[in-house]
Nucleic acid binder design. Structure first.
Lengths: 320, 320
DNA sequence: CCCCTTATTGTCAGATCGAATATAAGCGGA
DNA sequence: TCCGCTTATATTCGATCTGACAATAAGGGG
């Protein structure tokens, strides 16, 4: 391969310049009682992570190793998210090239050996504007005027209009529908408009509005990336079941999806979709724990992973 | 951040172990006359690539630099694909950690300054089983029995059934529908079953069936990843227009989509979808170059990038 | 002027989807 | 025991979307 051409441009620094530090970083998600939870380490607000090292057989196995070591939690389903490396990345040293390869992992809390200092936190603590299950969240009443100010503050009329439109689309302002998949766009908008803490870091920080807890370095951006991916994926792949116990009621399943999507779903329609797609089968047992009529228990039909591998799982989350 | 814990396990090799070589690699796609083309360099069968270096402001700008230098072709639309790093990656040295961050880029051939030794090749030269526009391609008549042999050759009955099913799903055997998005699964199946050249590399290579041209290292896998991503993306984002000239007829647009998808689309339905989504607007001119009735020329409504950023672009590619 | 080619418009039935309604089955208190 | 509360489960209806097919329009060439 002819990579030489430009590699020697920096002269004797060439060899060094070809190397970079590579970190593996995980967004580990579980859901219990309608709460979408995120696995954090240390004094919290930090995602499990560690350097990719020689002894790792692959990126995935390296990631599993780090998470298990730092949290005592073995991982099941894993999926690569994105590789971050911009030089002006928050938390990066100016002249050091650090690359983070991020992953999304889905598990259940139970299998936690709960070793080191780690814990679960609702991801809506970090991104409170993402939870629309009880209507439009109150943070948005605060953020909306701020976003308008930011848009109006643009130098020329063109960027002003453009900013207003971007905000309207991302947050569903003026009669637009809320689109739960735009999590990353919303984060980036808030970052650009300096309405969240990490936007001010490094400079003489103007204290931001209190909109959600910040995280270490660019971890909150990575979380937003993970949420966006997950919200999109549950609509066409049966990944929700990675978060469910072996047997569950249909309402529990629905509540889990709602927790992830941050919005409510019409009950009969949800049932219809799940059943007619044959994603689940009855166990024959029922659960009385719900207060009303006992609910049938279901289990995931693992066969769909085979006979429908390409087909997809639809969920009624289309429009408002 | 507490990454130290395991980082020193290898003793004095610790510092070195935290570094890795990072390559940027591009799948550059253009379409002309119903042919989906791939930009290659050198004596061909190699994707443009180069190391991520200190002077690069970001991964994307580094990639643009390499592609422009190696091919004289400036890039427009770019999107990150996947980061590869498994140790047993084809083409990787055993004890060296090399990471490839791959990107998908969409352009048009015209803007090629055509500098260095580079060229365009139909991507179906590399993956001939992916083109179903003229019915099931002939390679599949050869591959199908080989895949069956491979499946039957499994040691136990369980993996035998599993292999048969995987092949049937990926390639649409026995009454299943062809799913054009499963490009990567198909590549991996052919790799596992040693029906393509790169599967034999390194070992005492049994010459594989002649099923498509191989590429350098794992470039063909990266191409397959890119095709899969693109085929999925054209269905919900208006990215096709990156490949079109400023003005075009609806049939040209359809042919472009078909070239990417590797399958034919119903004409009236395609028009209906494009028009009712207001993706395009008439230029007022017509083109007589088609032989029959002159076709209206259209241009992409760039406004949709704004007012519909989250909505999506549907294309009638759902089932068979 | 007829015929061939391609463009453009229209129709129709089946599937899908969102919303709302109706019935069933437990529990507990009067 | 009966009533009313809760939640589960089953059905219905209309609007919309989609796939398949048919019909008409507008060029060029013999």
């Amino acid at each position: 391969m002819n990579h030489q051409a430009k590699g020697t441009r920096k002269g004797r620094a060439a060899v060094k310049a070809d190397e970079a530090k590579v970190d593996l970083i995980a967004v580990v998600v579980a859901v219990t009682d309608s709460d979408p939870c995120l696995l954090t380490i240390g004094n919290a607000d930090t995602l499990p992570s560690g350097p990719y090292a020689l002894e790792h057989r692959s990126l995935q196995s390296g990631l599993r190793g780090w998470v298990e070591q730092q949290t005592g939690h073995p991982l099941g389903y894993i999926e690569q998210l994105y590789t971050f490396a911009d030089r002006d990345r928050i938390g990066a040293e100016p002249q050091e090239r650090a690359i983070s390869i991020s992953y999304l992992a889905l598990t259940r809390k139970e299998q936690a050996a709960g070793s080191a200092s780690c814990g679960w936190r609702s991801w809506y603590e970090y991104l409170p504007w993402e939870d629309h299950r009880s209507g439009t969240p109150v943070v948005l009443d605060i953020l909306r005027p701020r976003l308008s100010e930011w848009a109006e503050g643009a130098s020329d009329a063109t960027t002003r209009r453009e900013r207003l439109q971007r905000a309207a689309i991302a947050f569903g302002f003026d009669h637009r529908n809320w689109n739960e998949e735009l999590t990353l766009q919303r984060y980036e908008l808030l970052y650009e408009s300096a309405l969240i803490e990490e936007a001010g870091r490094g400079r003489d920080a103007t204290p931001a509005v209190t909109s959600g807890k910040a995280m270490v370095a660019d971890h909150r951006r990575i979380l937003a990336t993970g949420i966006a991916r997950l919200r999109s994926k549950i609509k066409y792949r049966p990944v929700v079941f990675e978060l469910m116990r072996p047997s569950f009621t249909l309402l529990q399943l629905q509540r889990t999806v709602e927790a992830l999507a941050g919005r409510l779903i019409n009950k009969p329609n949800f049932r219809r979709l799940v059943e007619q797609q044959e994603l689940v089968e009855e166990t024959g047992e029922t659960s009385l724990e719900t207060g009303g009529r006992p609910a049938k228990l279901y289990r995931f039909r693992h066969a769909v992973l085979d006979d429908r591998a390409g087909a997809g799982t639809k969920l009624p989350l289309a429009r408002a």
